[in-house]
Design a protein around this nucleic acid. Structure first.
Lengths: 221, 221
DNA sequence: ATTTATTTTTAGACAAACCTAAAAAAAATT
DNA sequence: AATTTTTTTTAGGTTTGTCTAAAAATAAAT
């Protein structure tokens, strides 16, 4: 059923999965960019994945993961997020330090390992960045959430996730005491650069750029 | 200082380390056998490791790890054994199930990960098979031990390690209640096949083949 | 001390995953 | 609708780590 995948193949599948979340179909250049390789290399790999029935590929038109490819992606994401949870909650890593290590750990292939890790961690539902962890059958529960930048003014909301793995950004958020679960409110929207004036708890309000406000996902109370 | 090593290179280094424990120098064929590859492939890799100053290589004569190669090996072994300890003591794997997974985990490269794992586990000194875990500086403390087959008759001894990762053998030992720390005594040596009659605790004595008796290491009380 | 057998190395190929440069297809512009 | 630009694919090369077959070196046996 599930064929053995190389690390390279897994990385392609994972990237395609993420890219196709916000688009009908994925393009060669977008994937090349995302995976930091050249378009020609992407084309090579697309053919390979197509041949393995992991991809629906229309030359020159774009591509999406097949049903089977999707399942494979969710498996990789499951491993990645469980390891991130382990690193933060057991090994005391900061949430801005875990991404690169989890990128390696996710390629360790053992169903038993993943299931036992899951049990050991107490079947967590979300990783340290607030992203949902797929279960052993590839079922994933997306949260209802919106980017902070779309939150109406003076409306209390809870930070549910951060859609950016940059350790600089994550450290910046920690520094401002913005974590998953933190209550926020937007006090002001500055139109010339789309930045926000944000307030949490009883602290003084502070400034947040458009990029950051796009990465922070919230759920209004 | 320490160059980045591929998984293949790490596997060669680890195998050479183990082979040179019981020999002056290692031969191409022995390594090819151990690593399940062909002698020609070994020769190729030897040249590469020599070039990276990890190996002292005399064509046609044999080879040993250099000082730097040894350090690299101990690092790999440290990672392998810490993960084995984690799998058994945290994730509840049996000692006969951990080898293959640890073979994958040992190639995850992050100094911080290894050190935090070590701390999380409480700086264990021995892995589940009784082998010593090198510290962060590559220092390793070998135990005083001898193969069970050399233990004099009717002399109580403690099992200190098992020098064989075969899951069949390990499951066999578990089944006979022979674990690290178990007290054993040899009741009889059968000369026609070098097998032993062994007794533990107040259980009935049982039979152990030459191969098994060679793998079990003990320390007389 | 030759000859024979074994071990090791060299030579040349192959697959995976990448690359650059050129060609082909699709999209955008005039 | 024809031309230009952009995107994508093809063609051919490189590196890593493997292989087989043949050659060279060493070891063993007569």
């Amino acid at each position: 059923m599930s064929p053995n995948l190389s690390v390279a193949e897994e990385n392609y599948i994972k990237s395609i999965y993420h890219l196709q979340q916000d688009a009908e179909s994925v393009t060669t250049n977008a994937l090349a960019d995302h995976i930091k390789t050249k378009p020609a290399s992407v084309t090579d790999m697309l053919k390979k994945l197509q041949l393995k029935n992991l991809l629906n590929y229309n030359p020159y038109k774009g591509f999406r993961l097949s049903k089977e490819g999707n399942k494979a992606a969710l498996n990789i994401i499951r491993r990645h997020r469980l390891w991130e949870y382990f690193l933060v909650n057991q090994l005391q890593f900061n949430w801005d330090e875990v991404h690169d290590v989890a990128e390696q750990l996710e390629h360790v292939i053992s169903r038993k390992l993943v299931d036992k890790l899951d049990a050991f961690l107490g079947y967590p539902k979300f990783d340290p960045h607030g992203d949902p962890i797929p279960d052993g059958n590839g079922k994933i529960n997306y949260q209802q959430q919106m980017p902070l930048i779309n939150l109406p003014l003076n409306t209390a909301a809870i930070i549910t996730s951060v859609q950016n793995q940059s350790s600089d950004l994550l450290a910046f958020l920690s520094n401002r005491d913005m974590h998953i679960g933190t209550k926020v409110e937007v006090k002001q929207k500055l139109n010339f650069d789309n930045s926000l004036e944000v307030k949490i708890k009883n602290k003084q309000s502070f400034h947040v750029s458009e990029q950051v406000a796009n990465a922070i996902q919230v759920n209004p109370l």
